[in-house]
Design a protein around this nucleic acid. Structure first.
Lengths: 220, 220
DNA sequence: TGCAAAAATGCACGCCGTGCAAAATCGTCC
DNA sequence: GGACGATTTTGCACGGCGTGCATTTTTGCA
């Protein structure tokens, strides 16, 4: 369905992508310089070389230009999750799918850093950013639920440990999808605060380790 | 600082509270009837009997009127957490603090139900609602961090189990605060979807049990 | 090259949100 | 009880946001 991702031969399509990227980049750069709420749609449009009206053909609101970086990142995560080895637990599978996508983030370190800077200065944009992931969250929960239903892990081959039957799988899937999103956000925030000290991947792994351990009280 | 909560003798203060409540209630009722995005500030103000300009003296934006129900719920949770028994783990303490506040929710069932209805019909408002909790999240993380630093649980009295030294307590505290907020949201959503089937408290407990267990793959 | 579909644009309009100054209301002191 | 200072409410004006519609320009294709 989303097979033709990056390499699209359509000339028309390419130009649309270029325009969208130009608008997004102009928005982020202007926001980093003057502060997000001092950047008008008119300024963004002018910097990207299109009319104000055209801006609204690409983004539903001014804030979206600051928020939506890569529109189909969610789709890639979903694909990765669908092709994850059946041996992995849901939490592990999701962790790996996210890690793969987020390694891309570290490669475009500069743009993301700028982006993080803008979001930090304007909390309400960060909130919007969360909202952008919420739609993904629902879809992700569906995939997780299906994964659980189809392929029970049975890693060791024998019956399960003396562990309570946890009720609705829907609830589990939703919770996992939501918590994973939260984990990504917290990881990014923490890494963004101590930018030069830590590798993002380490923070990310640490966070998921904490989750898998059941958020135990830290040993001081 | 927030000592005088509900019972305030000041006549002026009372009138302000009344006006704010009237505006919020009018907003929610109109939104429930006509849909949130078909409700203008003018309509809300008229229903509450004040001018449009006054509306903006009470709320920073139109959406805030739909979102902010109880402004100092966060403060109460913080207080509860501060007075929680030292024997509880951070996760347990936070769970109990939230549970106490959320029992209030079930009492005002009708208002919250209406509210949930409005938020469900307008996802972007739900996002804003999350945002309202994000400021709380940072403060909460600070309290958790301090709680960890001051009173190490040492429930059994001896040294810790063979368990890795999990790095920054800041990271843990932030993660816990964020995940707890997510847990509340997922619980509310799940409960809201199956309103008559489950008690909210049960869903809430179930979610925190899953978190404490490290989100294990559910036994099918 | 000519034609149909799609995208970009201009224009008009209504609502949002804010600064400012005038008017109304409230608490207090005499 | 009445006047005064402080706070709140209100009207007004203005700029920015976001949308519908008709028009013009660009693109893909025959």
């Amino acid at each position: 369905m989303t097979g033709k991702d990056t390499a699209t031969g359509g000339l028309r399509e390419r130009k649309k992508r270029a325009t969208r990227a130009a608008l997004a980049e102009a928005a982020v750069r202007l926001a980093a310089e003057h502060g997000a709420d001092h950047v008008t749609v008119e300024a963004i449009s002018a910097a990207a070389g299109v009319s104000v009206r055209t801006f609204f053909n690409y983004f539903d609101s001014r804030d979206d230009a600051f928020v939506v970086i890569d529109a189909d990142a969610g789709a890639r995560v979903r694909q990765a999750l669908l092709h994850a080895p059946a041996a992995l637990s849901p939490l592990e599978a999701l962790r790996e799918a996210l890690a793969a996508e987020l390694s891309e983030v570290e490669r475009q370190h500069e743009l993301w850093s700028l982006h993080a800077q803008v979001l930090r200065a304007a909390p309400h944009l960060l909130v919007r950013s969360l909202g952008a992931h919420m739609a993904d969250e629902a879809v992700l929960a569906g995939i997780i639920a299906r994964r659980i239903a189809s392929g029970p892990p049975e890693g060791t081959g024998d019956t399960v440990r003396p562990q309570e039957e946890h009720g609705a799988p829907d609830l589990y899937a939703r919770l996992l999808a939501a918590v994973a999103g939260t984990a990504v956000r917290v990881s990014l925030q923490h890494w963004s605060d101590r930018q030069d000290e830590l590798a993002f991947a380490d923070v990310f792994r640490e966070v998921f380790a904490l989750l898998a351990a059941g958020l135990p009280a830290p040993t001081r």
